[in-house]
Design a protein around this nucleic acid. Structure first.
Length: 275
DNA sequence: CGAGGTACCTGACAGC
DNA sequence: TGCTGTCAGGTACCTC
């Protein structure tokens, strides 16, 4: 479900409440969600007693830095939620893993579709955390310059939509923010990466950074059921120019927004504004 | 490298 | 009511 701005919002909330807390127990109701180590007994033994030192993010992955040089890395995929709750709150139907904290609070891992994964790894074995080690650069990083962005395109010929969705190319964009960034840059999603002009690449760089920063400012996009760790919805859906607006008029030029399947994902763009 | 397909899961919704 | 098909904010893996 969440893309970079939603994950960043969750991380900012969790930082306020999780740092210095100790995990005193874990209830695993759905072992399928554990990506590493292979069995839930090992996972539980490894995590009980750990103190949470910090909470951060890389791409769409949430990172809990733990004591004893370990990390818990979580990817929410399509429908995942990480919720901070009172321990006496009723479990939801889709609460699959519960981390009991030392202050009568819980960190709960919820997901309807069971695509989400949690990895408990040693700091020195990051490769055990799925695609974590193969992530491309952070688009909002202070050190990620226009020059760096342009260099990424060297030798790439893929359709721009698919390239932006590729986490190895760049980390954090998903279907919503890719469509929104391409609209703001005036680039049709079916364009080949090697057909983009220098000027278009500059516009795209700025559009990606802007749309992600705004997404964070608004606390993410709640299209159906996204909520942050405190159960609050996002507000960026009000700022969407094309996503989920198929058949409606473009706010900018009045053309009807097109919705069609591109690279296997439903894609939204304006035929008037995007060339 | 890249395109297209499948797979993983559950639920909402449209159409019959 | 209930069946079937389609769709969903993601990614891994396979084949060509």
């Amino acid at each position: 479900m969440p893309e970079l701005p939603e994950v960043e919002t969750i991380v900012r909330e969790l930082k306020k409440v999780l740092i210095s807390r100790k995990i005193i127990n874990v209830e695993i109701k759905e072992p399928l969600l554990i990506g590493f180590p292979g069995n839930s007994v090992q996972f539980k033994e490894g995590i009980v007693g750990q103190k949470i030192i910090n909470v951060s993010r890389r791409g769409k992955y949430i990172i809990l830095v733990l004591s004893e040089e370990k990390r818990m890395i979580i990817h929410l995929r399509m429908s995942g939620k990480l919720l901070f709750k009172n321990s006496y709150d009723r479990y939801g139907k889709h609460t699959h893993i519960v981390f009991k904290l030392d202050n009568n609070k819980d960190l709960r891992f919820n997901t309807i579709r069971k695509f989400s994964r949690v990895y408990l790894i040693e700091d020195k074995c990051l490769e055990n955390a799925g695609g974590f080690v193969n992530l491309g650069p952070e688009p909002l990083g202070d050190d990620f310059t226009l020059r760096d962005f342009k260099l990424l395109f060297k030798g790439r010929k893929a359709i721009i939509k698919s390239l932006l969705l590729n986490q190895k190319f760049m980390a954090g964009l998903g279907n919503i923010y890719t469509d929104e960034a391409l609209f703001r840059a005036g680039i049709k999603p079916t364009r080949r990466a090697d057909s983009l002009t220098d000027k278009e690449l500059s516009k795209l760089y700025k559009a990606i950074r802007k749309v992600l920063a705004e997404g964070i400012k608004y606390g993410g996009t709640t299209f159906s059921d996204y909520v942050n760790a405190m159960g609050q919805k996002g507000d960026f859906q009000g700022e969407l120019m094309v996503y989920q607006r198929g058949g409606e008029k473009c706010y900018n030029c009045g053309h009807k927004i097109i919705r069609e399947k591109i690279c296997g994902r439903s894609t939204h763009y304006c035929p008037g504004c995007q060339q």
